[in-house]
Amino acid sequence: MVAQFGEQVRSALRARGISIREAARRLTYDPAYLNRVLNGRQAPSPQLVKRLDDLLGAGDAVVGLAALLPPDDRGRVSRSIARPARLDRRVVDALAGVLAAQRRLDDAVGAAPLVRPTEAQLLTVKQLLRDARGPHRDALLGVVAEYVQFAGWLHASAGNYVEASVHLYDAVELADEAGEGTLAAQALNFRGYIARRQGRPAAVARWFDAAYRTPGAHAAQRMGDAAQAAQGYAQLGERETAKRLLGEAGDLADAAREQPPGTAYWLTPDFQRLSLGLAHLGMAEYGTAADHLRAGLDGLPVEQRHADWTAEYRAALEEAERAR
């Protein structure tokens, strides 16, 4: 799985129209050395990792990804893949760390460069889960459920809706098996996101409503899901239902300020304003929508402000500003 680092960085460079030779020129590194690193034949130096991070504008996401698996943990992961019965908690934690870093990398470089390497990693962790035994399998199950969900998100963000829907269906099944309500709710939320991208308000209302009512969902998830379900109902002309859900979202605001789950780390109070903005836009309350959307975008962390997924909210803000 460590070899995937080079593929992810190589894909991110390609998505920006930068060849390995051009990257080497900009970084003043030997092209042959950079080629070996990005093709997994040589470990990168810390200096090169930092320079690549700066070149991609990744906000230390590349640095974090490169630092995740020291040699000892690499050996543990390889041994566990070869002999799943020897799975230990350190391996599970290492895999969870790789996944967390890839989520941050998605914010910085976008979904498209990560689809292929994530799919390759997903095959590995699913095989490990299939063959694993012992006391750490349940912890691995939660990590695999999140891996499947993340793959679904990447496909959804890249516009591959069929592949995304298949992964997200599996993610709900795995989350239920693991007893992870937060993961199940997030997978349903991503189904709602796909429906919104496709312009299907009935499906928007259905999926976000289902996420809102999922047992075990965090208050921050439920607040955002209620607001986004309200948008779908408003677009269907069910204004009273939309108003009720917006009220319920507001009732959750205080509880939602608690630290969100790591699997939904982006659900800050500022991000919630983006969901509220979409809901008010659906209700044709353009001034309120514009205020929420602008505040939400301005409040995003620096590394998220130009993420692919922000384009939807920027377009919504432009629409609200035009109509107010």
Rank of each mutant, 00 (worst) to 15 (best):
A203P: 07
A242W: 01
A156V: 03
G282C: 14
A219F: 02
V98D: 13
A85R: 08
L293P: 02
R89N: 12
P215N: 03
A205I: 14
G179Q: 05
R305F: 00
R14H: 12
E248L: 06
G57V: 00
A3T: 13
A315E: 15
G181F: 06
Y286T: 07
G134Y: 05
K243M: 08
P71G: 12
A289F: 09
R74A: 15
H167E: 08
R76Y: 12
R10Q: 14
Q8R: 14
R196I: 00
I194C: 02
L55H: 07
L188G: 05
E173W: 01
P135D: 08
L128A: 07
L34D: 06
R14S: 14
S165R: 11
F150R: 10
A111M: 10
L27C: 01
L56A: 06
A85F: 00
R305C: 11
V166D: 13
L245W: 02
A178M: 05
R36E: 04
F150N: 12
V162W: 11
A171P: 03
A67Y: 04
A316I: 04
L300E: 10
A220P: 05
P260T: 03
L183Q: 10
L27A: 11
A24H: 05
L245P: 14
G262Q: 02
A67E: 15
L252C: 06
G6H: 02
H306L: 09
A120I: 06
S19P: 09
D176Y: 00
Y265K: 07
D254N: 09
E119D: 11
Q186L: 04
G17L: 00
R130L: 08
V77A: 10
V91N: 06
Q4M: 01
N39V: 02
A164R: 02
E240Y: 00
E258H: 04
R90L: 12
A255E: 15
V204R: 05
E238A: 08
R16A: 04
Q47N: 15
F271Y: 06
G142Y: 00
G97N: 11
P44L: 00
H280M: 04
R133K: 15
P71T: 08
L95Y: 04
V37T: 12
L34R: 00
R200S: 11
